[in-house]
Amino acid sequence: MSPEAFVDVLREALSIIVIIVSAVVVPSLVVGLIVSVFQAATSINEQTLSFLPRLLTTLLALMFIGHWLVQTLMDFFMEMVQRIPQVVG
């Protein structure tokens, strides 16, 4: 495997990882920020008040975009399998 091909595969894999993780984490961060502002405004310092909405948001995000996430990973895997002859030969 040439260094250029390896760097190309690594770059593509890292970009897919960043996109997939961002799609799950960003909604949770937004909800966490909203809950934190609410807690600061009302002086409520309850840990479960910030944890539960973020957990539910993450689960809902996985439910709604799970198909897209799996499809993206499958497309990447199939592309890597199709590249095997080019990389080996």
Rank of each mutant, 00 (worst) to 15 (best):
W68E: 08
A40K: 15
M74I: 11
L60R: 05
V70R: 07
R83K: 14
P85G: 10
V24L: 13
V70Y: 06
L52R: 04
E46R: 03
T72E: 03
S43E: 14
L60N: 05
F76E: 05
T72D: 01
S43A: 13
F38C: 02
Q71D: 15
I20H: 03
H67R: 14
V24S: 09
V35Q: 03
V37Q: 03
F51M: 05
V31R: 05
F64T: 06
P85R: 08
L14E: 02
F64L: 08
L60P: 01
V37E: 02
L10R: 13
M78H: 05
L73G: 14
S50E: 01
I19T: 11
V37I: 15
M1G: 15
R11C: 00
R83I: 05
V9F: 15
V81Q: 09
V21T: 11
P27F: 07
E4L: 12
V9N: 14
L56K: 04
F76T: 05
I20W: 00
V87N: 06
S22R: 10
V70C: 02
V35I: 15
I17R: 04
R11F: 06
F6V: 13
S50Y: 00
A41C: 07
S28A: 15
F6D: 01
V81K: 09
Q86G: 11
I65N: 09
L55N: 02
L59V: 10
I84C: 03
I34C: 12
V9Y: 14
F51R: 00
L59S: 06
A5S: 15
N45I: 00
W68Q: 08
H67E: 12
A61C: 07
A5R: 14
L14V: 09
L62S: 02
I84E: 03
M63P: 00
F6E: 06
L52G: 00
G66W: 07
A41H: 06
S43G: 09
V26T: 13
L29Q: 07
A5C: 07
R83Q: 12
V88C: 01
R11T: 14
S28H: 00
L59H: 01
G32I: 04
L33C: 09
V18Q: 08
L56H: 03
S28Y: 02
G66I: 06
P85V: 10
V9G: 08
L69S: 08
G32D: 04
Q86W: 05
L29A: 15
S22L: 11
G66A: 04
T48M: 07
L73Y: 09
G32E: 01
A61S: 11
E46F: 04
N45W: 04
T58E: 01
Q86H: 10
